[in-house]
Design a protein around this nucleic acid. Structure first.
Length: 507
RNA sequence: GCGCCUGUAGCUCAGUGGAAGAGCGGCGGCCUUCUAAGCCGUUGGUCGGGGGUUCGAAUCCCUCCAGGCGCACCA
């Protein structure tokens, strides 16, 4: 990634000051455009009063043409005010980078597989799967934007006990019999019963359609039954032992909390477990050429996070190539009452119904705007009403407003060169745009796409304020302000695209 | 009992060592001008409690309290 405007500024200020320092945007405008706390950090080392060091640094930094003035404040902060020309340069950079602005933060390009959703096809996708999808897909989008080569895969079990019950439930329905014990019911079972043949493929089709509507598409679908055929070959490669008639993996010797059963004892059916499939699957992923395999799992699977790393070690792979992303669960309430999300009882909220109520944009925004460590409660009865207050519309509205200006401006010229003294609102907007690359890089690094909605709200906020008291078209500053609009529109659209939300031209 | 996560404004949540924030809600203002789904003002806080480290802690460490999720020859 090319050096960003803030990075260059940091480098120039460091050089002038003769010390490596970091610049931060103060919360209050009165504290300058940027500020550094380096004098506070140097004070104990140099055994000097922090304010004395700060004064010295401030004098040195003032020699830079880009620095308009400085100030020593508080216990020893150095606050900087920048010349208008700096803002113009930043704006020109954003425009020149175009759609690539903020892209390519990856040190080196990796082939990455993100496995997400992976709900067994015993029923339609429900809201809790949607969080997995919204989160995992946004991480995947961030990784792609960073320059990685990303594939999305959906893994499902078409053979286990759960699936047998599912098939038996459909079969019973076809014969007009009662569903088996712990079987599945609901209108979707009736629909599947009306179709000939194995109900699994049509169920998967429906899941794929729902997820596509939620703007998640998969590059591949992996079947557990196919993988399991290669189990004998892989079993030889991991450390195992027999106990109580079952075959165990000695994963505790490789960083796991406990050993895991790979093949059940004869009296329990003697079949391989899901964990056995994990071994084959991880081997398969890494042998397919992925540098990194990312698993997106709900916090209820927290216990297996160490297992995957242990599997990698047992197979002789670097465990760094395996990454487990956990997110806390989604709890549904209905008028305050807890609604259990059990597919078998049909007491669930399907993603399709949820999207009918709140819309795709509000749904994706809502599910991705909380940090993955934060659990989510959704009151199904209030969801539609609440979605009307979703900040996504605030952000989309800013984008639509800009789109209107750009549309009206037609082919008019846009340039970062300021035509006159810049206002506070104009500077704030440029500074916000300048933050984007670092924000995206951090969100990618931390696998935290929830930074995007937060940033998008702030950017929209800065734009709405600018819009309120600055005329663009027909003003003397039209060329500069149009550039500002185009840049803001571009970054706003990118912020939304990275979380799978549309940026409308009109509202 | 053990492990992971959470506790910040009335509500929902950002903020992983630097000068406490946003949205929604409440109250009061602003539409002859590129979109009022907007803007401005105001109301609001023992950052769960207590100790520690640090010049400086919502942020790091210890401890206690409260809540969520795990701890299968289920997935």
């Amino acid at each position: 990634m090319r050096e960003t405007a803030v990075e260059r500024l940091t480098r120039d200020v460091s050089a002038a000051a003769g010390v490596d320092l970091l610049l931060a945007r103060p919360a209050e405008a009165a504290h300058g455009d940027y500020a550094t706390n380096v004098a506070l950090q140097l004070a104990p080392v140099r055994r000097q009063a922090p304010r004395d060091i700060a004064a010295e640094l401030a004098r040195a930094v003032t020699t830079l043409p880009v620095v308009e003035r400085t100030e020593v404040a508080g216990p020893g902060f150095v606050n900087l005010w920048l010349a208008d020309s700096w803002y113009g340069d930043v704006l020109d950079e954003v425009l020149a980078a175009g759609r690539d602005y903020g892209a390519g933060c990856a040190d080196h390009r990796e082939r990455i597989q993100v496995e997400l959703v992976s709900a067994n096809p015993t029923g339609p996708i429900v809201v809790s799967h949607a969080r997995n999808g919204a989160y995992g897909d946004s991480v995947a989008r961030l990784l792609e934007f960073a320059g990685h080569d990303v594939d999305r895969e959906y893994y499902y079990n078409d053979a286990g006990r759960q699936m047998e019950r599912f098939r038996a439930s459909v079969t019973a329905r076809r014969r007009g019999e009662e569903p088996p014990e712990d079987g599945y019911t609901g209108s979707y079972i009736d629909e599947l019963a009306a179709i000939e043949g194995d109900p699994v493929p049509p169920m998967l089709d429906r899941i794929g359609e729902t997820l596509a509507r939620f703007r998640i598409t998969f590059d591949s679908w992996a079947l557990q039954s196919e993988l399991q055929q290669r189990l004998p070959e892989l079993l030889a490669r991991v450390e195992t032992y027999e106990k109580d008639g079952a075959l165990w993996a000695r994963s505790s010797g490789f960083g796991d909390d406990e050993d895991k059963v790979l093949v059940r004892s004869p009296e329990r059916g003697g079949l391989p477990t899901y964990r056995a499939a994990d071994v084959v699957y991880l081997h398969d992923k890494l042998e397919r050429g992925y540098d990194r395999a990312i698993y997106v799992l709900g916090a209820d699977h927290q216990g297996v996070a160490k297992w995957y790393a242990a599997v990698a070690r047992m197979l002789g792979y670097d465990p760094e190539r395996v990454e487990v992303l956990l997110y806390q669960l989604v709890h549904l309430t209905r008028g305050g009452e807890a609604a259990k999300m059990s597919k078998r009882r049909g007491d669930v909220v399907f993603l399709d119904e949820f999207l009918d109520q709140v819309g795709v944009d509000a749904g994706r925004w809502y599910l991705v705007s909380r940090g993955p460590d934060q659990s989510i409660e959704i009151d199904v009865d209030l969801a539609a009403e609440k979605s009307q207050k979703n900040p996504v519309y605030y952000v989309q509205y800013a984008h639509a407003r800009i789109a209107g200006i750009v549309r009206n401006a037609g082919a008019a010229q846009a340039s970062g060169k300021p035509a006159g003294p810049l206002s506070g609102a104009e500077k704030d907007l440029v500074k916000r745009l300048a933050e984007f690359p670092a924000m995206v890089a951090e969100a990618t690094d931390r696998r935290g796409p929830h930074a995007l909605p937060t940033y998008a709200i702030r950017l929209a906020d800065d734009f709405h304020r600018f819009y309120h008291d600055h005329r663009v078209i027909g003003s003397e500053e039209q060329t500069f302000r149009l550039a500002l609009c185009r840049a803001a529109q571009n970054v706003l659209a990118r912020s939304l695209a990275l979380i799978g939300v549309e940026a409308p031209e009109r509202m």
